[in-house]
Design a protein around this nucleic acid. Structure first.
Lengths: 343, 343
DNA sequence: CTGAAAGCGCTTACAG
DNA sequence: CTGAAAGCGCTTACAG
């Protein structure tokens, strides 16, 4: 026999964690009764109020904490909702993480989030880890290869949902990227016109050509130009990833007019644009004007900013949980309108 | 007998998850052998390379995923590192979350983060949940009541570490808030002097009077004033929480000079300051100048910004993991210098 | 109103 | 080189 879980309690002693057996012994009852009282099924078992109270009190005194590993192992369901996301440190994904946690808790479920740096290999590894945690559902947010995740999870019996980027093997919730980008483009064009005195095609920077959102946003961007009879030269469309460094170095190598309007595809890309602008002194009164897909409270106040398309995180998450409840067959796609924010 | 874990695989069939027993049966060997091969202890057990390969192949074919709940239940250690944090959606905490995950993974451990909205009750509930997950260590980041968390975890034999805000019952890693604030204050004073043509005491806004970081930063703020013989009137020190709304409404109710310098204690508070500034048209050439404790790439580019004190997240996390390795007795306090960023 | 017992899926000391 | 067996801490159908 081995020792079971032991740990140093910081004072040098060895502490064994309290179990329902310990409590049962102290209370002079059975582990079954303790379990039922502690997990709230005791009314169904018609355990006396007196005993229930005594058990609860002892559990508190002993600093009892349920062993979830044991509990989940035994039960049919874990009540854990897993989420995979690319990054934490921008406002869009940060808000998703925070609201996902709050919403999950409100339903009495447990959130577990894991962040995968937009790397497909890490994504699958993370999915595997979450399946090992026995998550009951998995939400893949902004996944590079959502279908691979869905396929893997399906084979383990775990239903998946896509958020931010859609997939073809599971229900998806995404922003209405087309309309959001079209409206934002219209705004940038009109503001640039007002300031520069003429309507020129905008630049488009950021995103991945393989990714659905970038394609849709580009479509909206082109639509807004077509509406007013503007053609966009191919060299004004710069789609080489979301990263800030890439955006900065690309702009650095280009021959750009003194004044121009630019559609920036994500605040991550915007960081690079702003650095370039600052370094080359291309901002201010007589410099460029930008609009950005995604909202950030400080970027919104930059003098060169003419508008931002905020994704409606709250409604997006609401839609995801509706899908979890509805368990729709096949690959439903729900599109949520963006909120256009002009200064 | 009950059914064991079953789940709908999305196609309407019922799927039972593959276990080591299934694999053992297919491979014509024992569950022990499968377990040993799959968790890498098989060389020690001198299992034949041939069998190991066969088992690995079958596991892959069957889409086997380890049941971590069962594994952790049986083992002495979970290898899970838990982290509690107040919020995700600002750059400082976002960076902590992201780097914590990456570092934890690099060590072959599993990160679990949970976000508690700076509410003491949620913090303890979260600690309880993480203990239930059988975390081997718990890091309390920016906790309102770190000692309560440490005491609770100690009784369950889980060692804790404090990050960002210190506690008295566990080792702590915090920024050198005093020096960071003093240097930032010096910078704001000198920039305000250069622009306004005179040296006036700055305003200080944001934070909690009960919190160690706010106290230290205020001390640095006052020190920088004292150095040059400036007294700060009490009504220039506004410490009523970190929240943006509160900051905005407080400024709204004050009688403020046209031009002034302000020390903003966190980017969260800065959001409120910037909103107030914009709404009342108090920014720009002839308006206020601010410096902010905490860094944000867009806030750094606002024209009214004169500098930011960036907390060195990377070194802070490095220090936390050093403490985890060293297991120091008592309540060590490690202070990490900030990085002063001037535009 | 309550308890004994089986079993969730692993790991590992032990015996060959 | 390999397997049988015990046990981690729970939950729950079953039997009183």
């Amino acid at each position: 026999m081995d020792n079971g879980r032991r740990a140093d309690d910081g004072a040098g002693q060895t502490a064994k964690r309290t179990t329902i057996y310990d409590i049962a012994e102290i209370a002079g009852t059975s582990p079954s009764a303790v379990s039922a009282v502690l997990n709230g099924t005791w009314k169904k078992r018609r355990i006396s109020e007196r005993l229930a109270e005594r058990i609860t009190r002892i559990a508190e005194e002993q600093g009892y904490a349920l062993n979830l590993q044991a509990s989940v192992l035994r039960r049919e369901r874990s009540n854990i909702v897993g989420m995979i996301m690319p990054k934490y440190d921008n406002r869009y994904f940060g808000a998703i993480a925070e609201q996902f946690e709050a919403r999950t808790r409100r339903r009495g479920l447990f959130p577990v989030i894991t962040c995968t740096q937009r790397e497909p290999e890490l994504e699958l590894e993370a999915a595997r880890a979450l399946v090992s945690y026995q998550v009951d559902w998995l939400i893949a947010t902004g996944a590079t290869d959502p279908d691979r995740i869905s396929a893997f999870c399906a084979s383990a019996g775990v239903p998946t949902f896509n958020l931010d980027l859609p997939g073809s093997l599971a229900p998806s919730v995404v922003s209405d990227n087309f309309a959001g980008a079209r409206d934002l483009t219209r705004l940038i064009i009109s503001r640039a016109h007002a300031e520069f005195g003429r309507s020129e095609p905008l630049y488009f920077i950021g995103g991945r050509s393989s990714d659905h959102n970038t394609a849709e946003r580009l479509r909206g961007f082109l639509e807004a130009h077509a509406e007013i009879g503007l053609d966009v030269p191919a060299d004004r469309i710069i789609i080489r990833g979301y990263g800030a460094e890439k955006a900065e170095s690309t702009l650095e190598g280009m021959d750009l007019p003194q004044r121009f309007g630019i559609f920036v595809n994500s605040t991550i890309t915007l960081e690079g644009v702003v650095r370039w602008m600052q370094r080359n002194n291309r901002g201010g009164e007589s410099g460029l004007r930008f609009g950005c897909f995604d909202w950030d409270p400080f970027a919104a106040r930059l003098p060169e900013n003419v508008g931002m398309a905020e994704q409606d995180v709250s409604r997006m998450l609401e839609a995801v949980f509706e899908l979890i409840d509805a368990q729709p067959a096949g690959n439903v796609l729900r599109q949520i309108p963006c909120i256009l924010r002009a200064p």
